[in-house]
Amino acid sequence: MKVLMKPIEMIAWFTQDGLPTPVRFRMEQPDGSYIVIRVARTITRKEERLAGNPMIIFTCQSIINGIEKLYEIRYELRTCKWYVYKI
């Protein structure tokens, strides 16, 4: 896996208790085109607050271009931004 930390456009669902789960996201490719990825499975979810900055970290699985891949998504609570951290 490679560290990307790339901001993405995200559709997520939140439970009544405010627990988010990523559903589908759109990521810009190096050539400027976009790729839409459906999150097939969220495997783990943990919280960290390095530098006092809380983030929720998800390990997810999807089929990207016909290959099943494992990757890490981060949700930064303070800014409400989603990132693909590692893919």
């Binding site: 560290v3 990307l4 930390m5 390095l50 530098a51 990132y83 951290y85």
Partner: peptide, 13 residues
């Protein structure tokens, strides 16, 4: 060190 940690958290290697 605060700046360093913030950068690491944001994907700086």
């Amino acid at each position: 060190s605060w700046e360093a940690v913030y950068r690491l958290q944001h994907g700086d290697t």
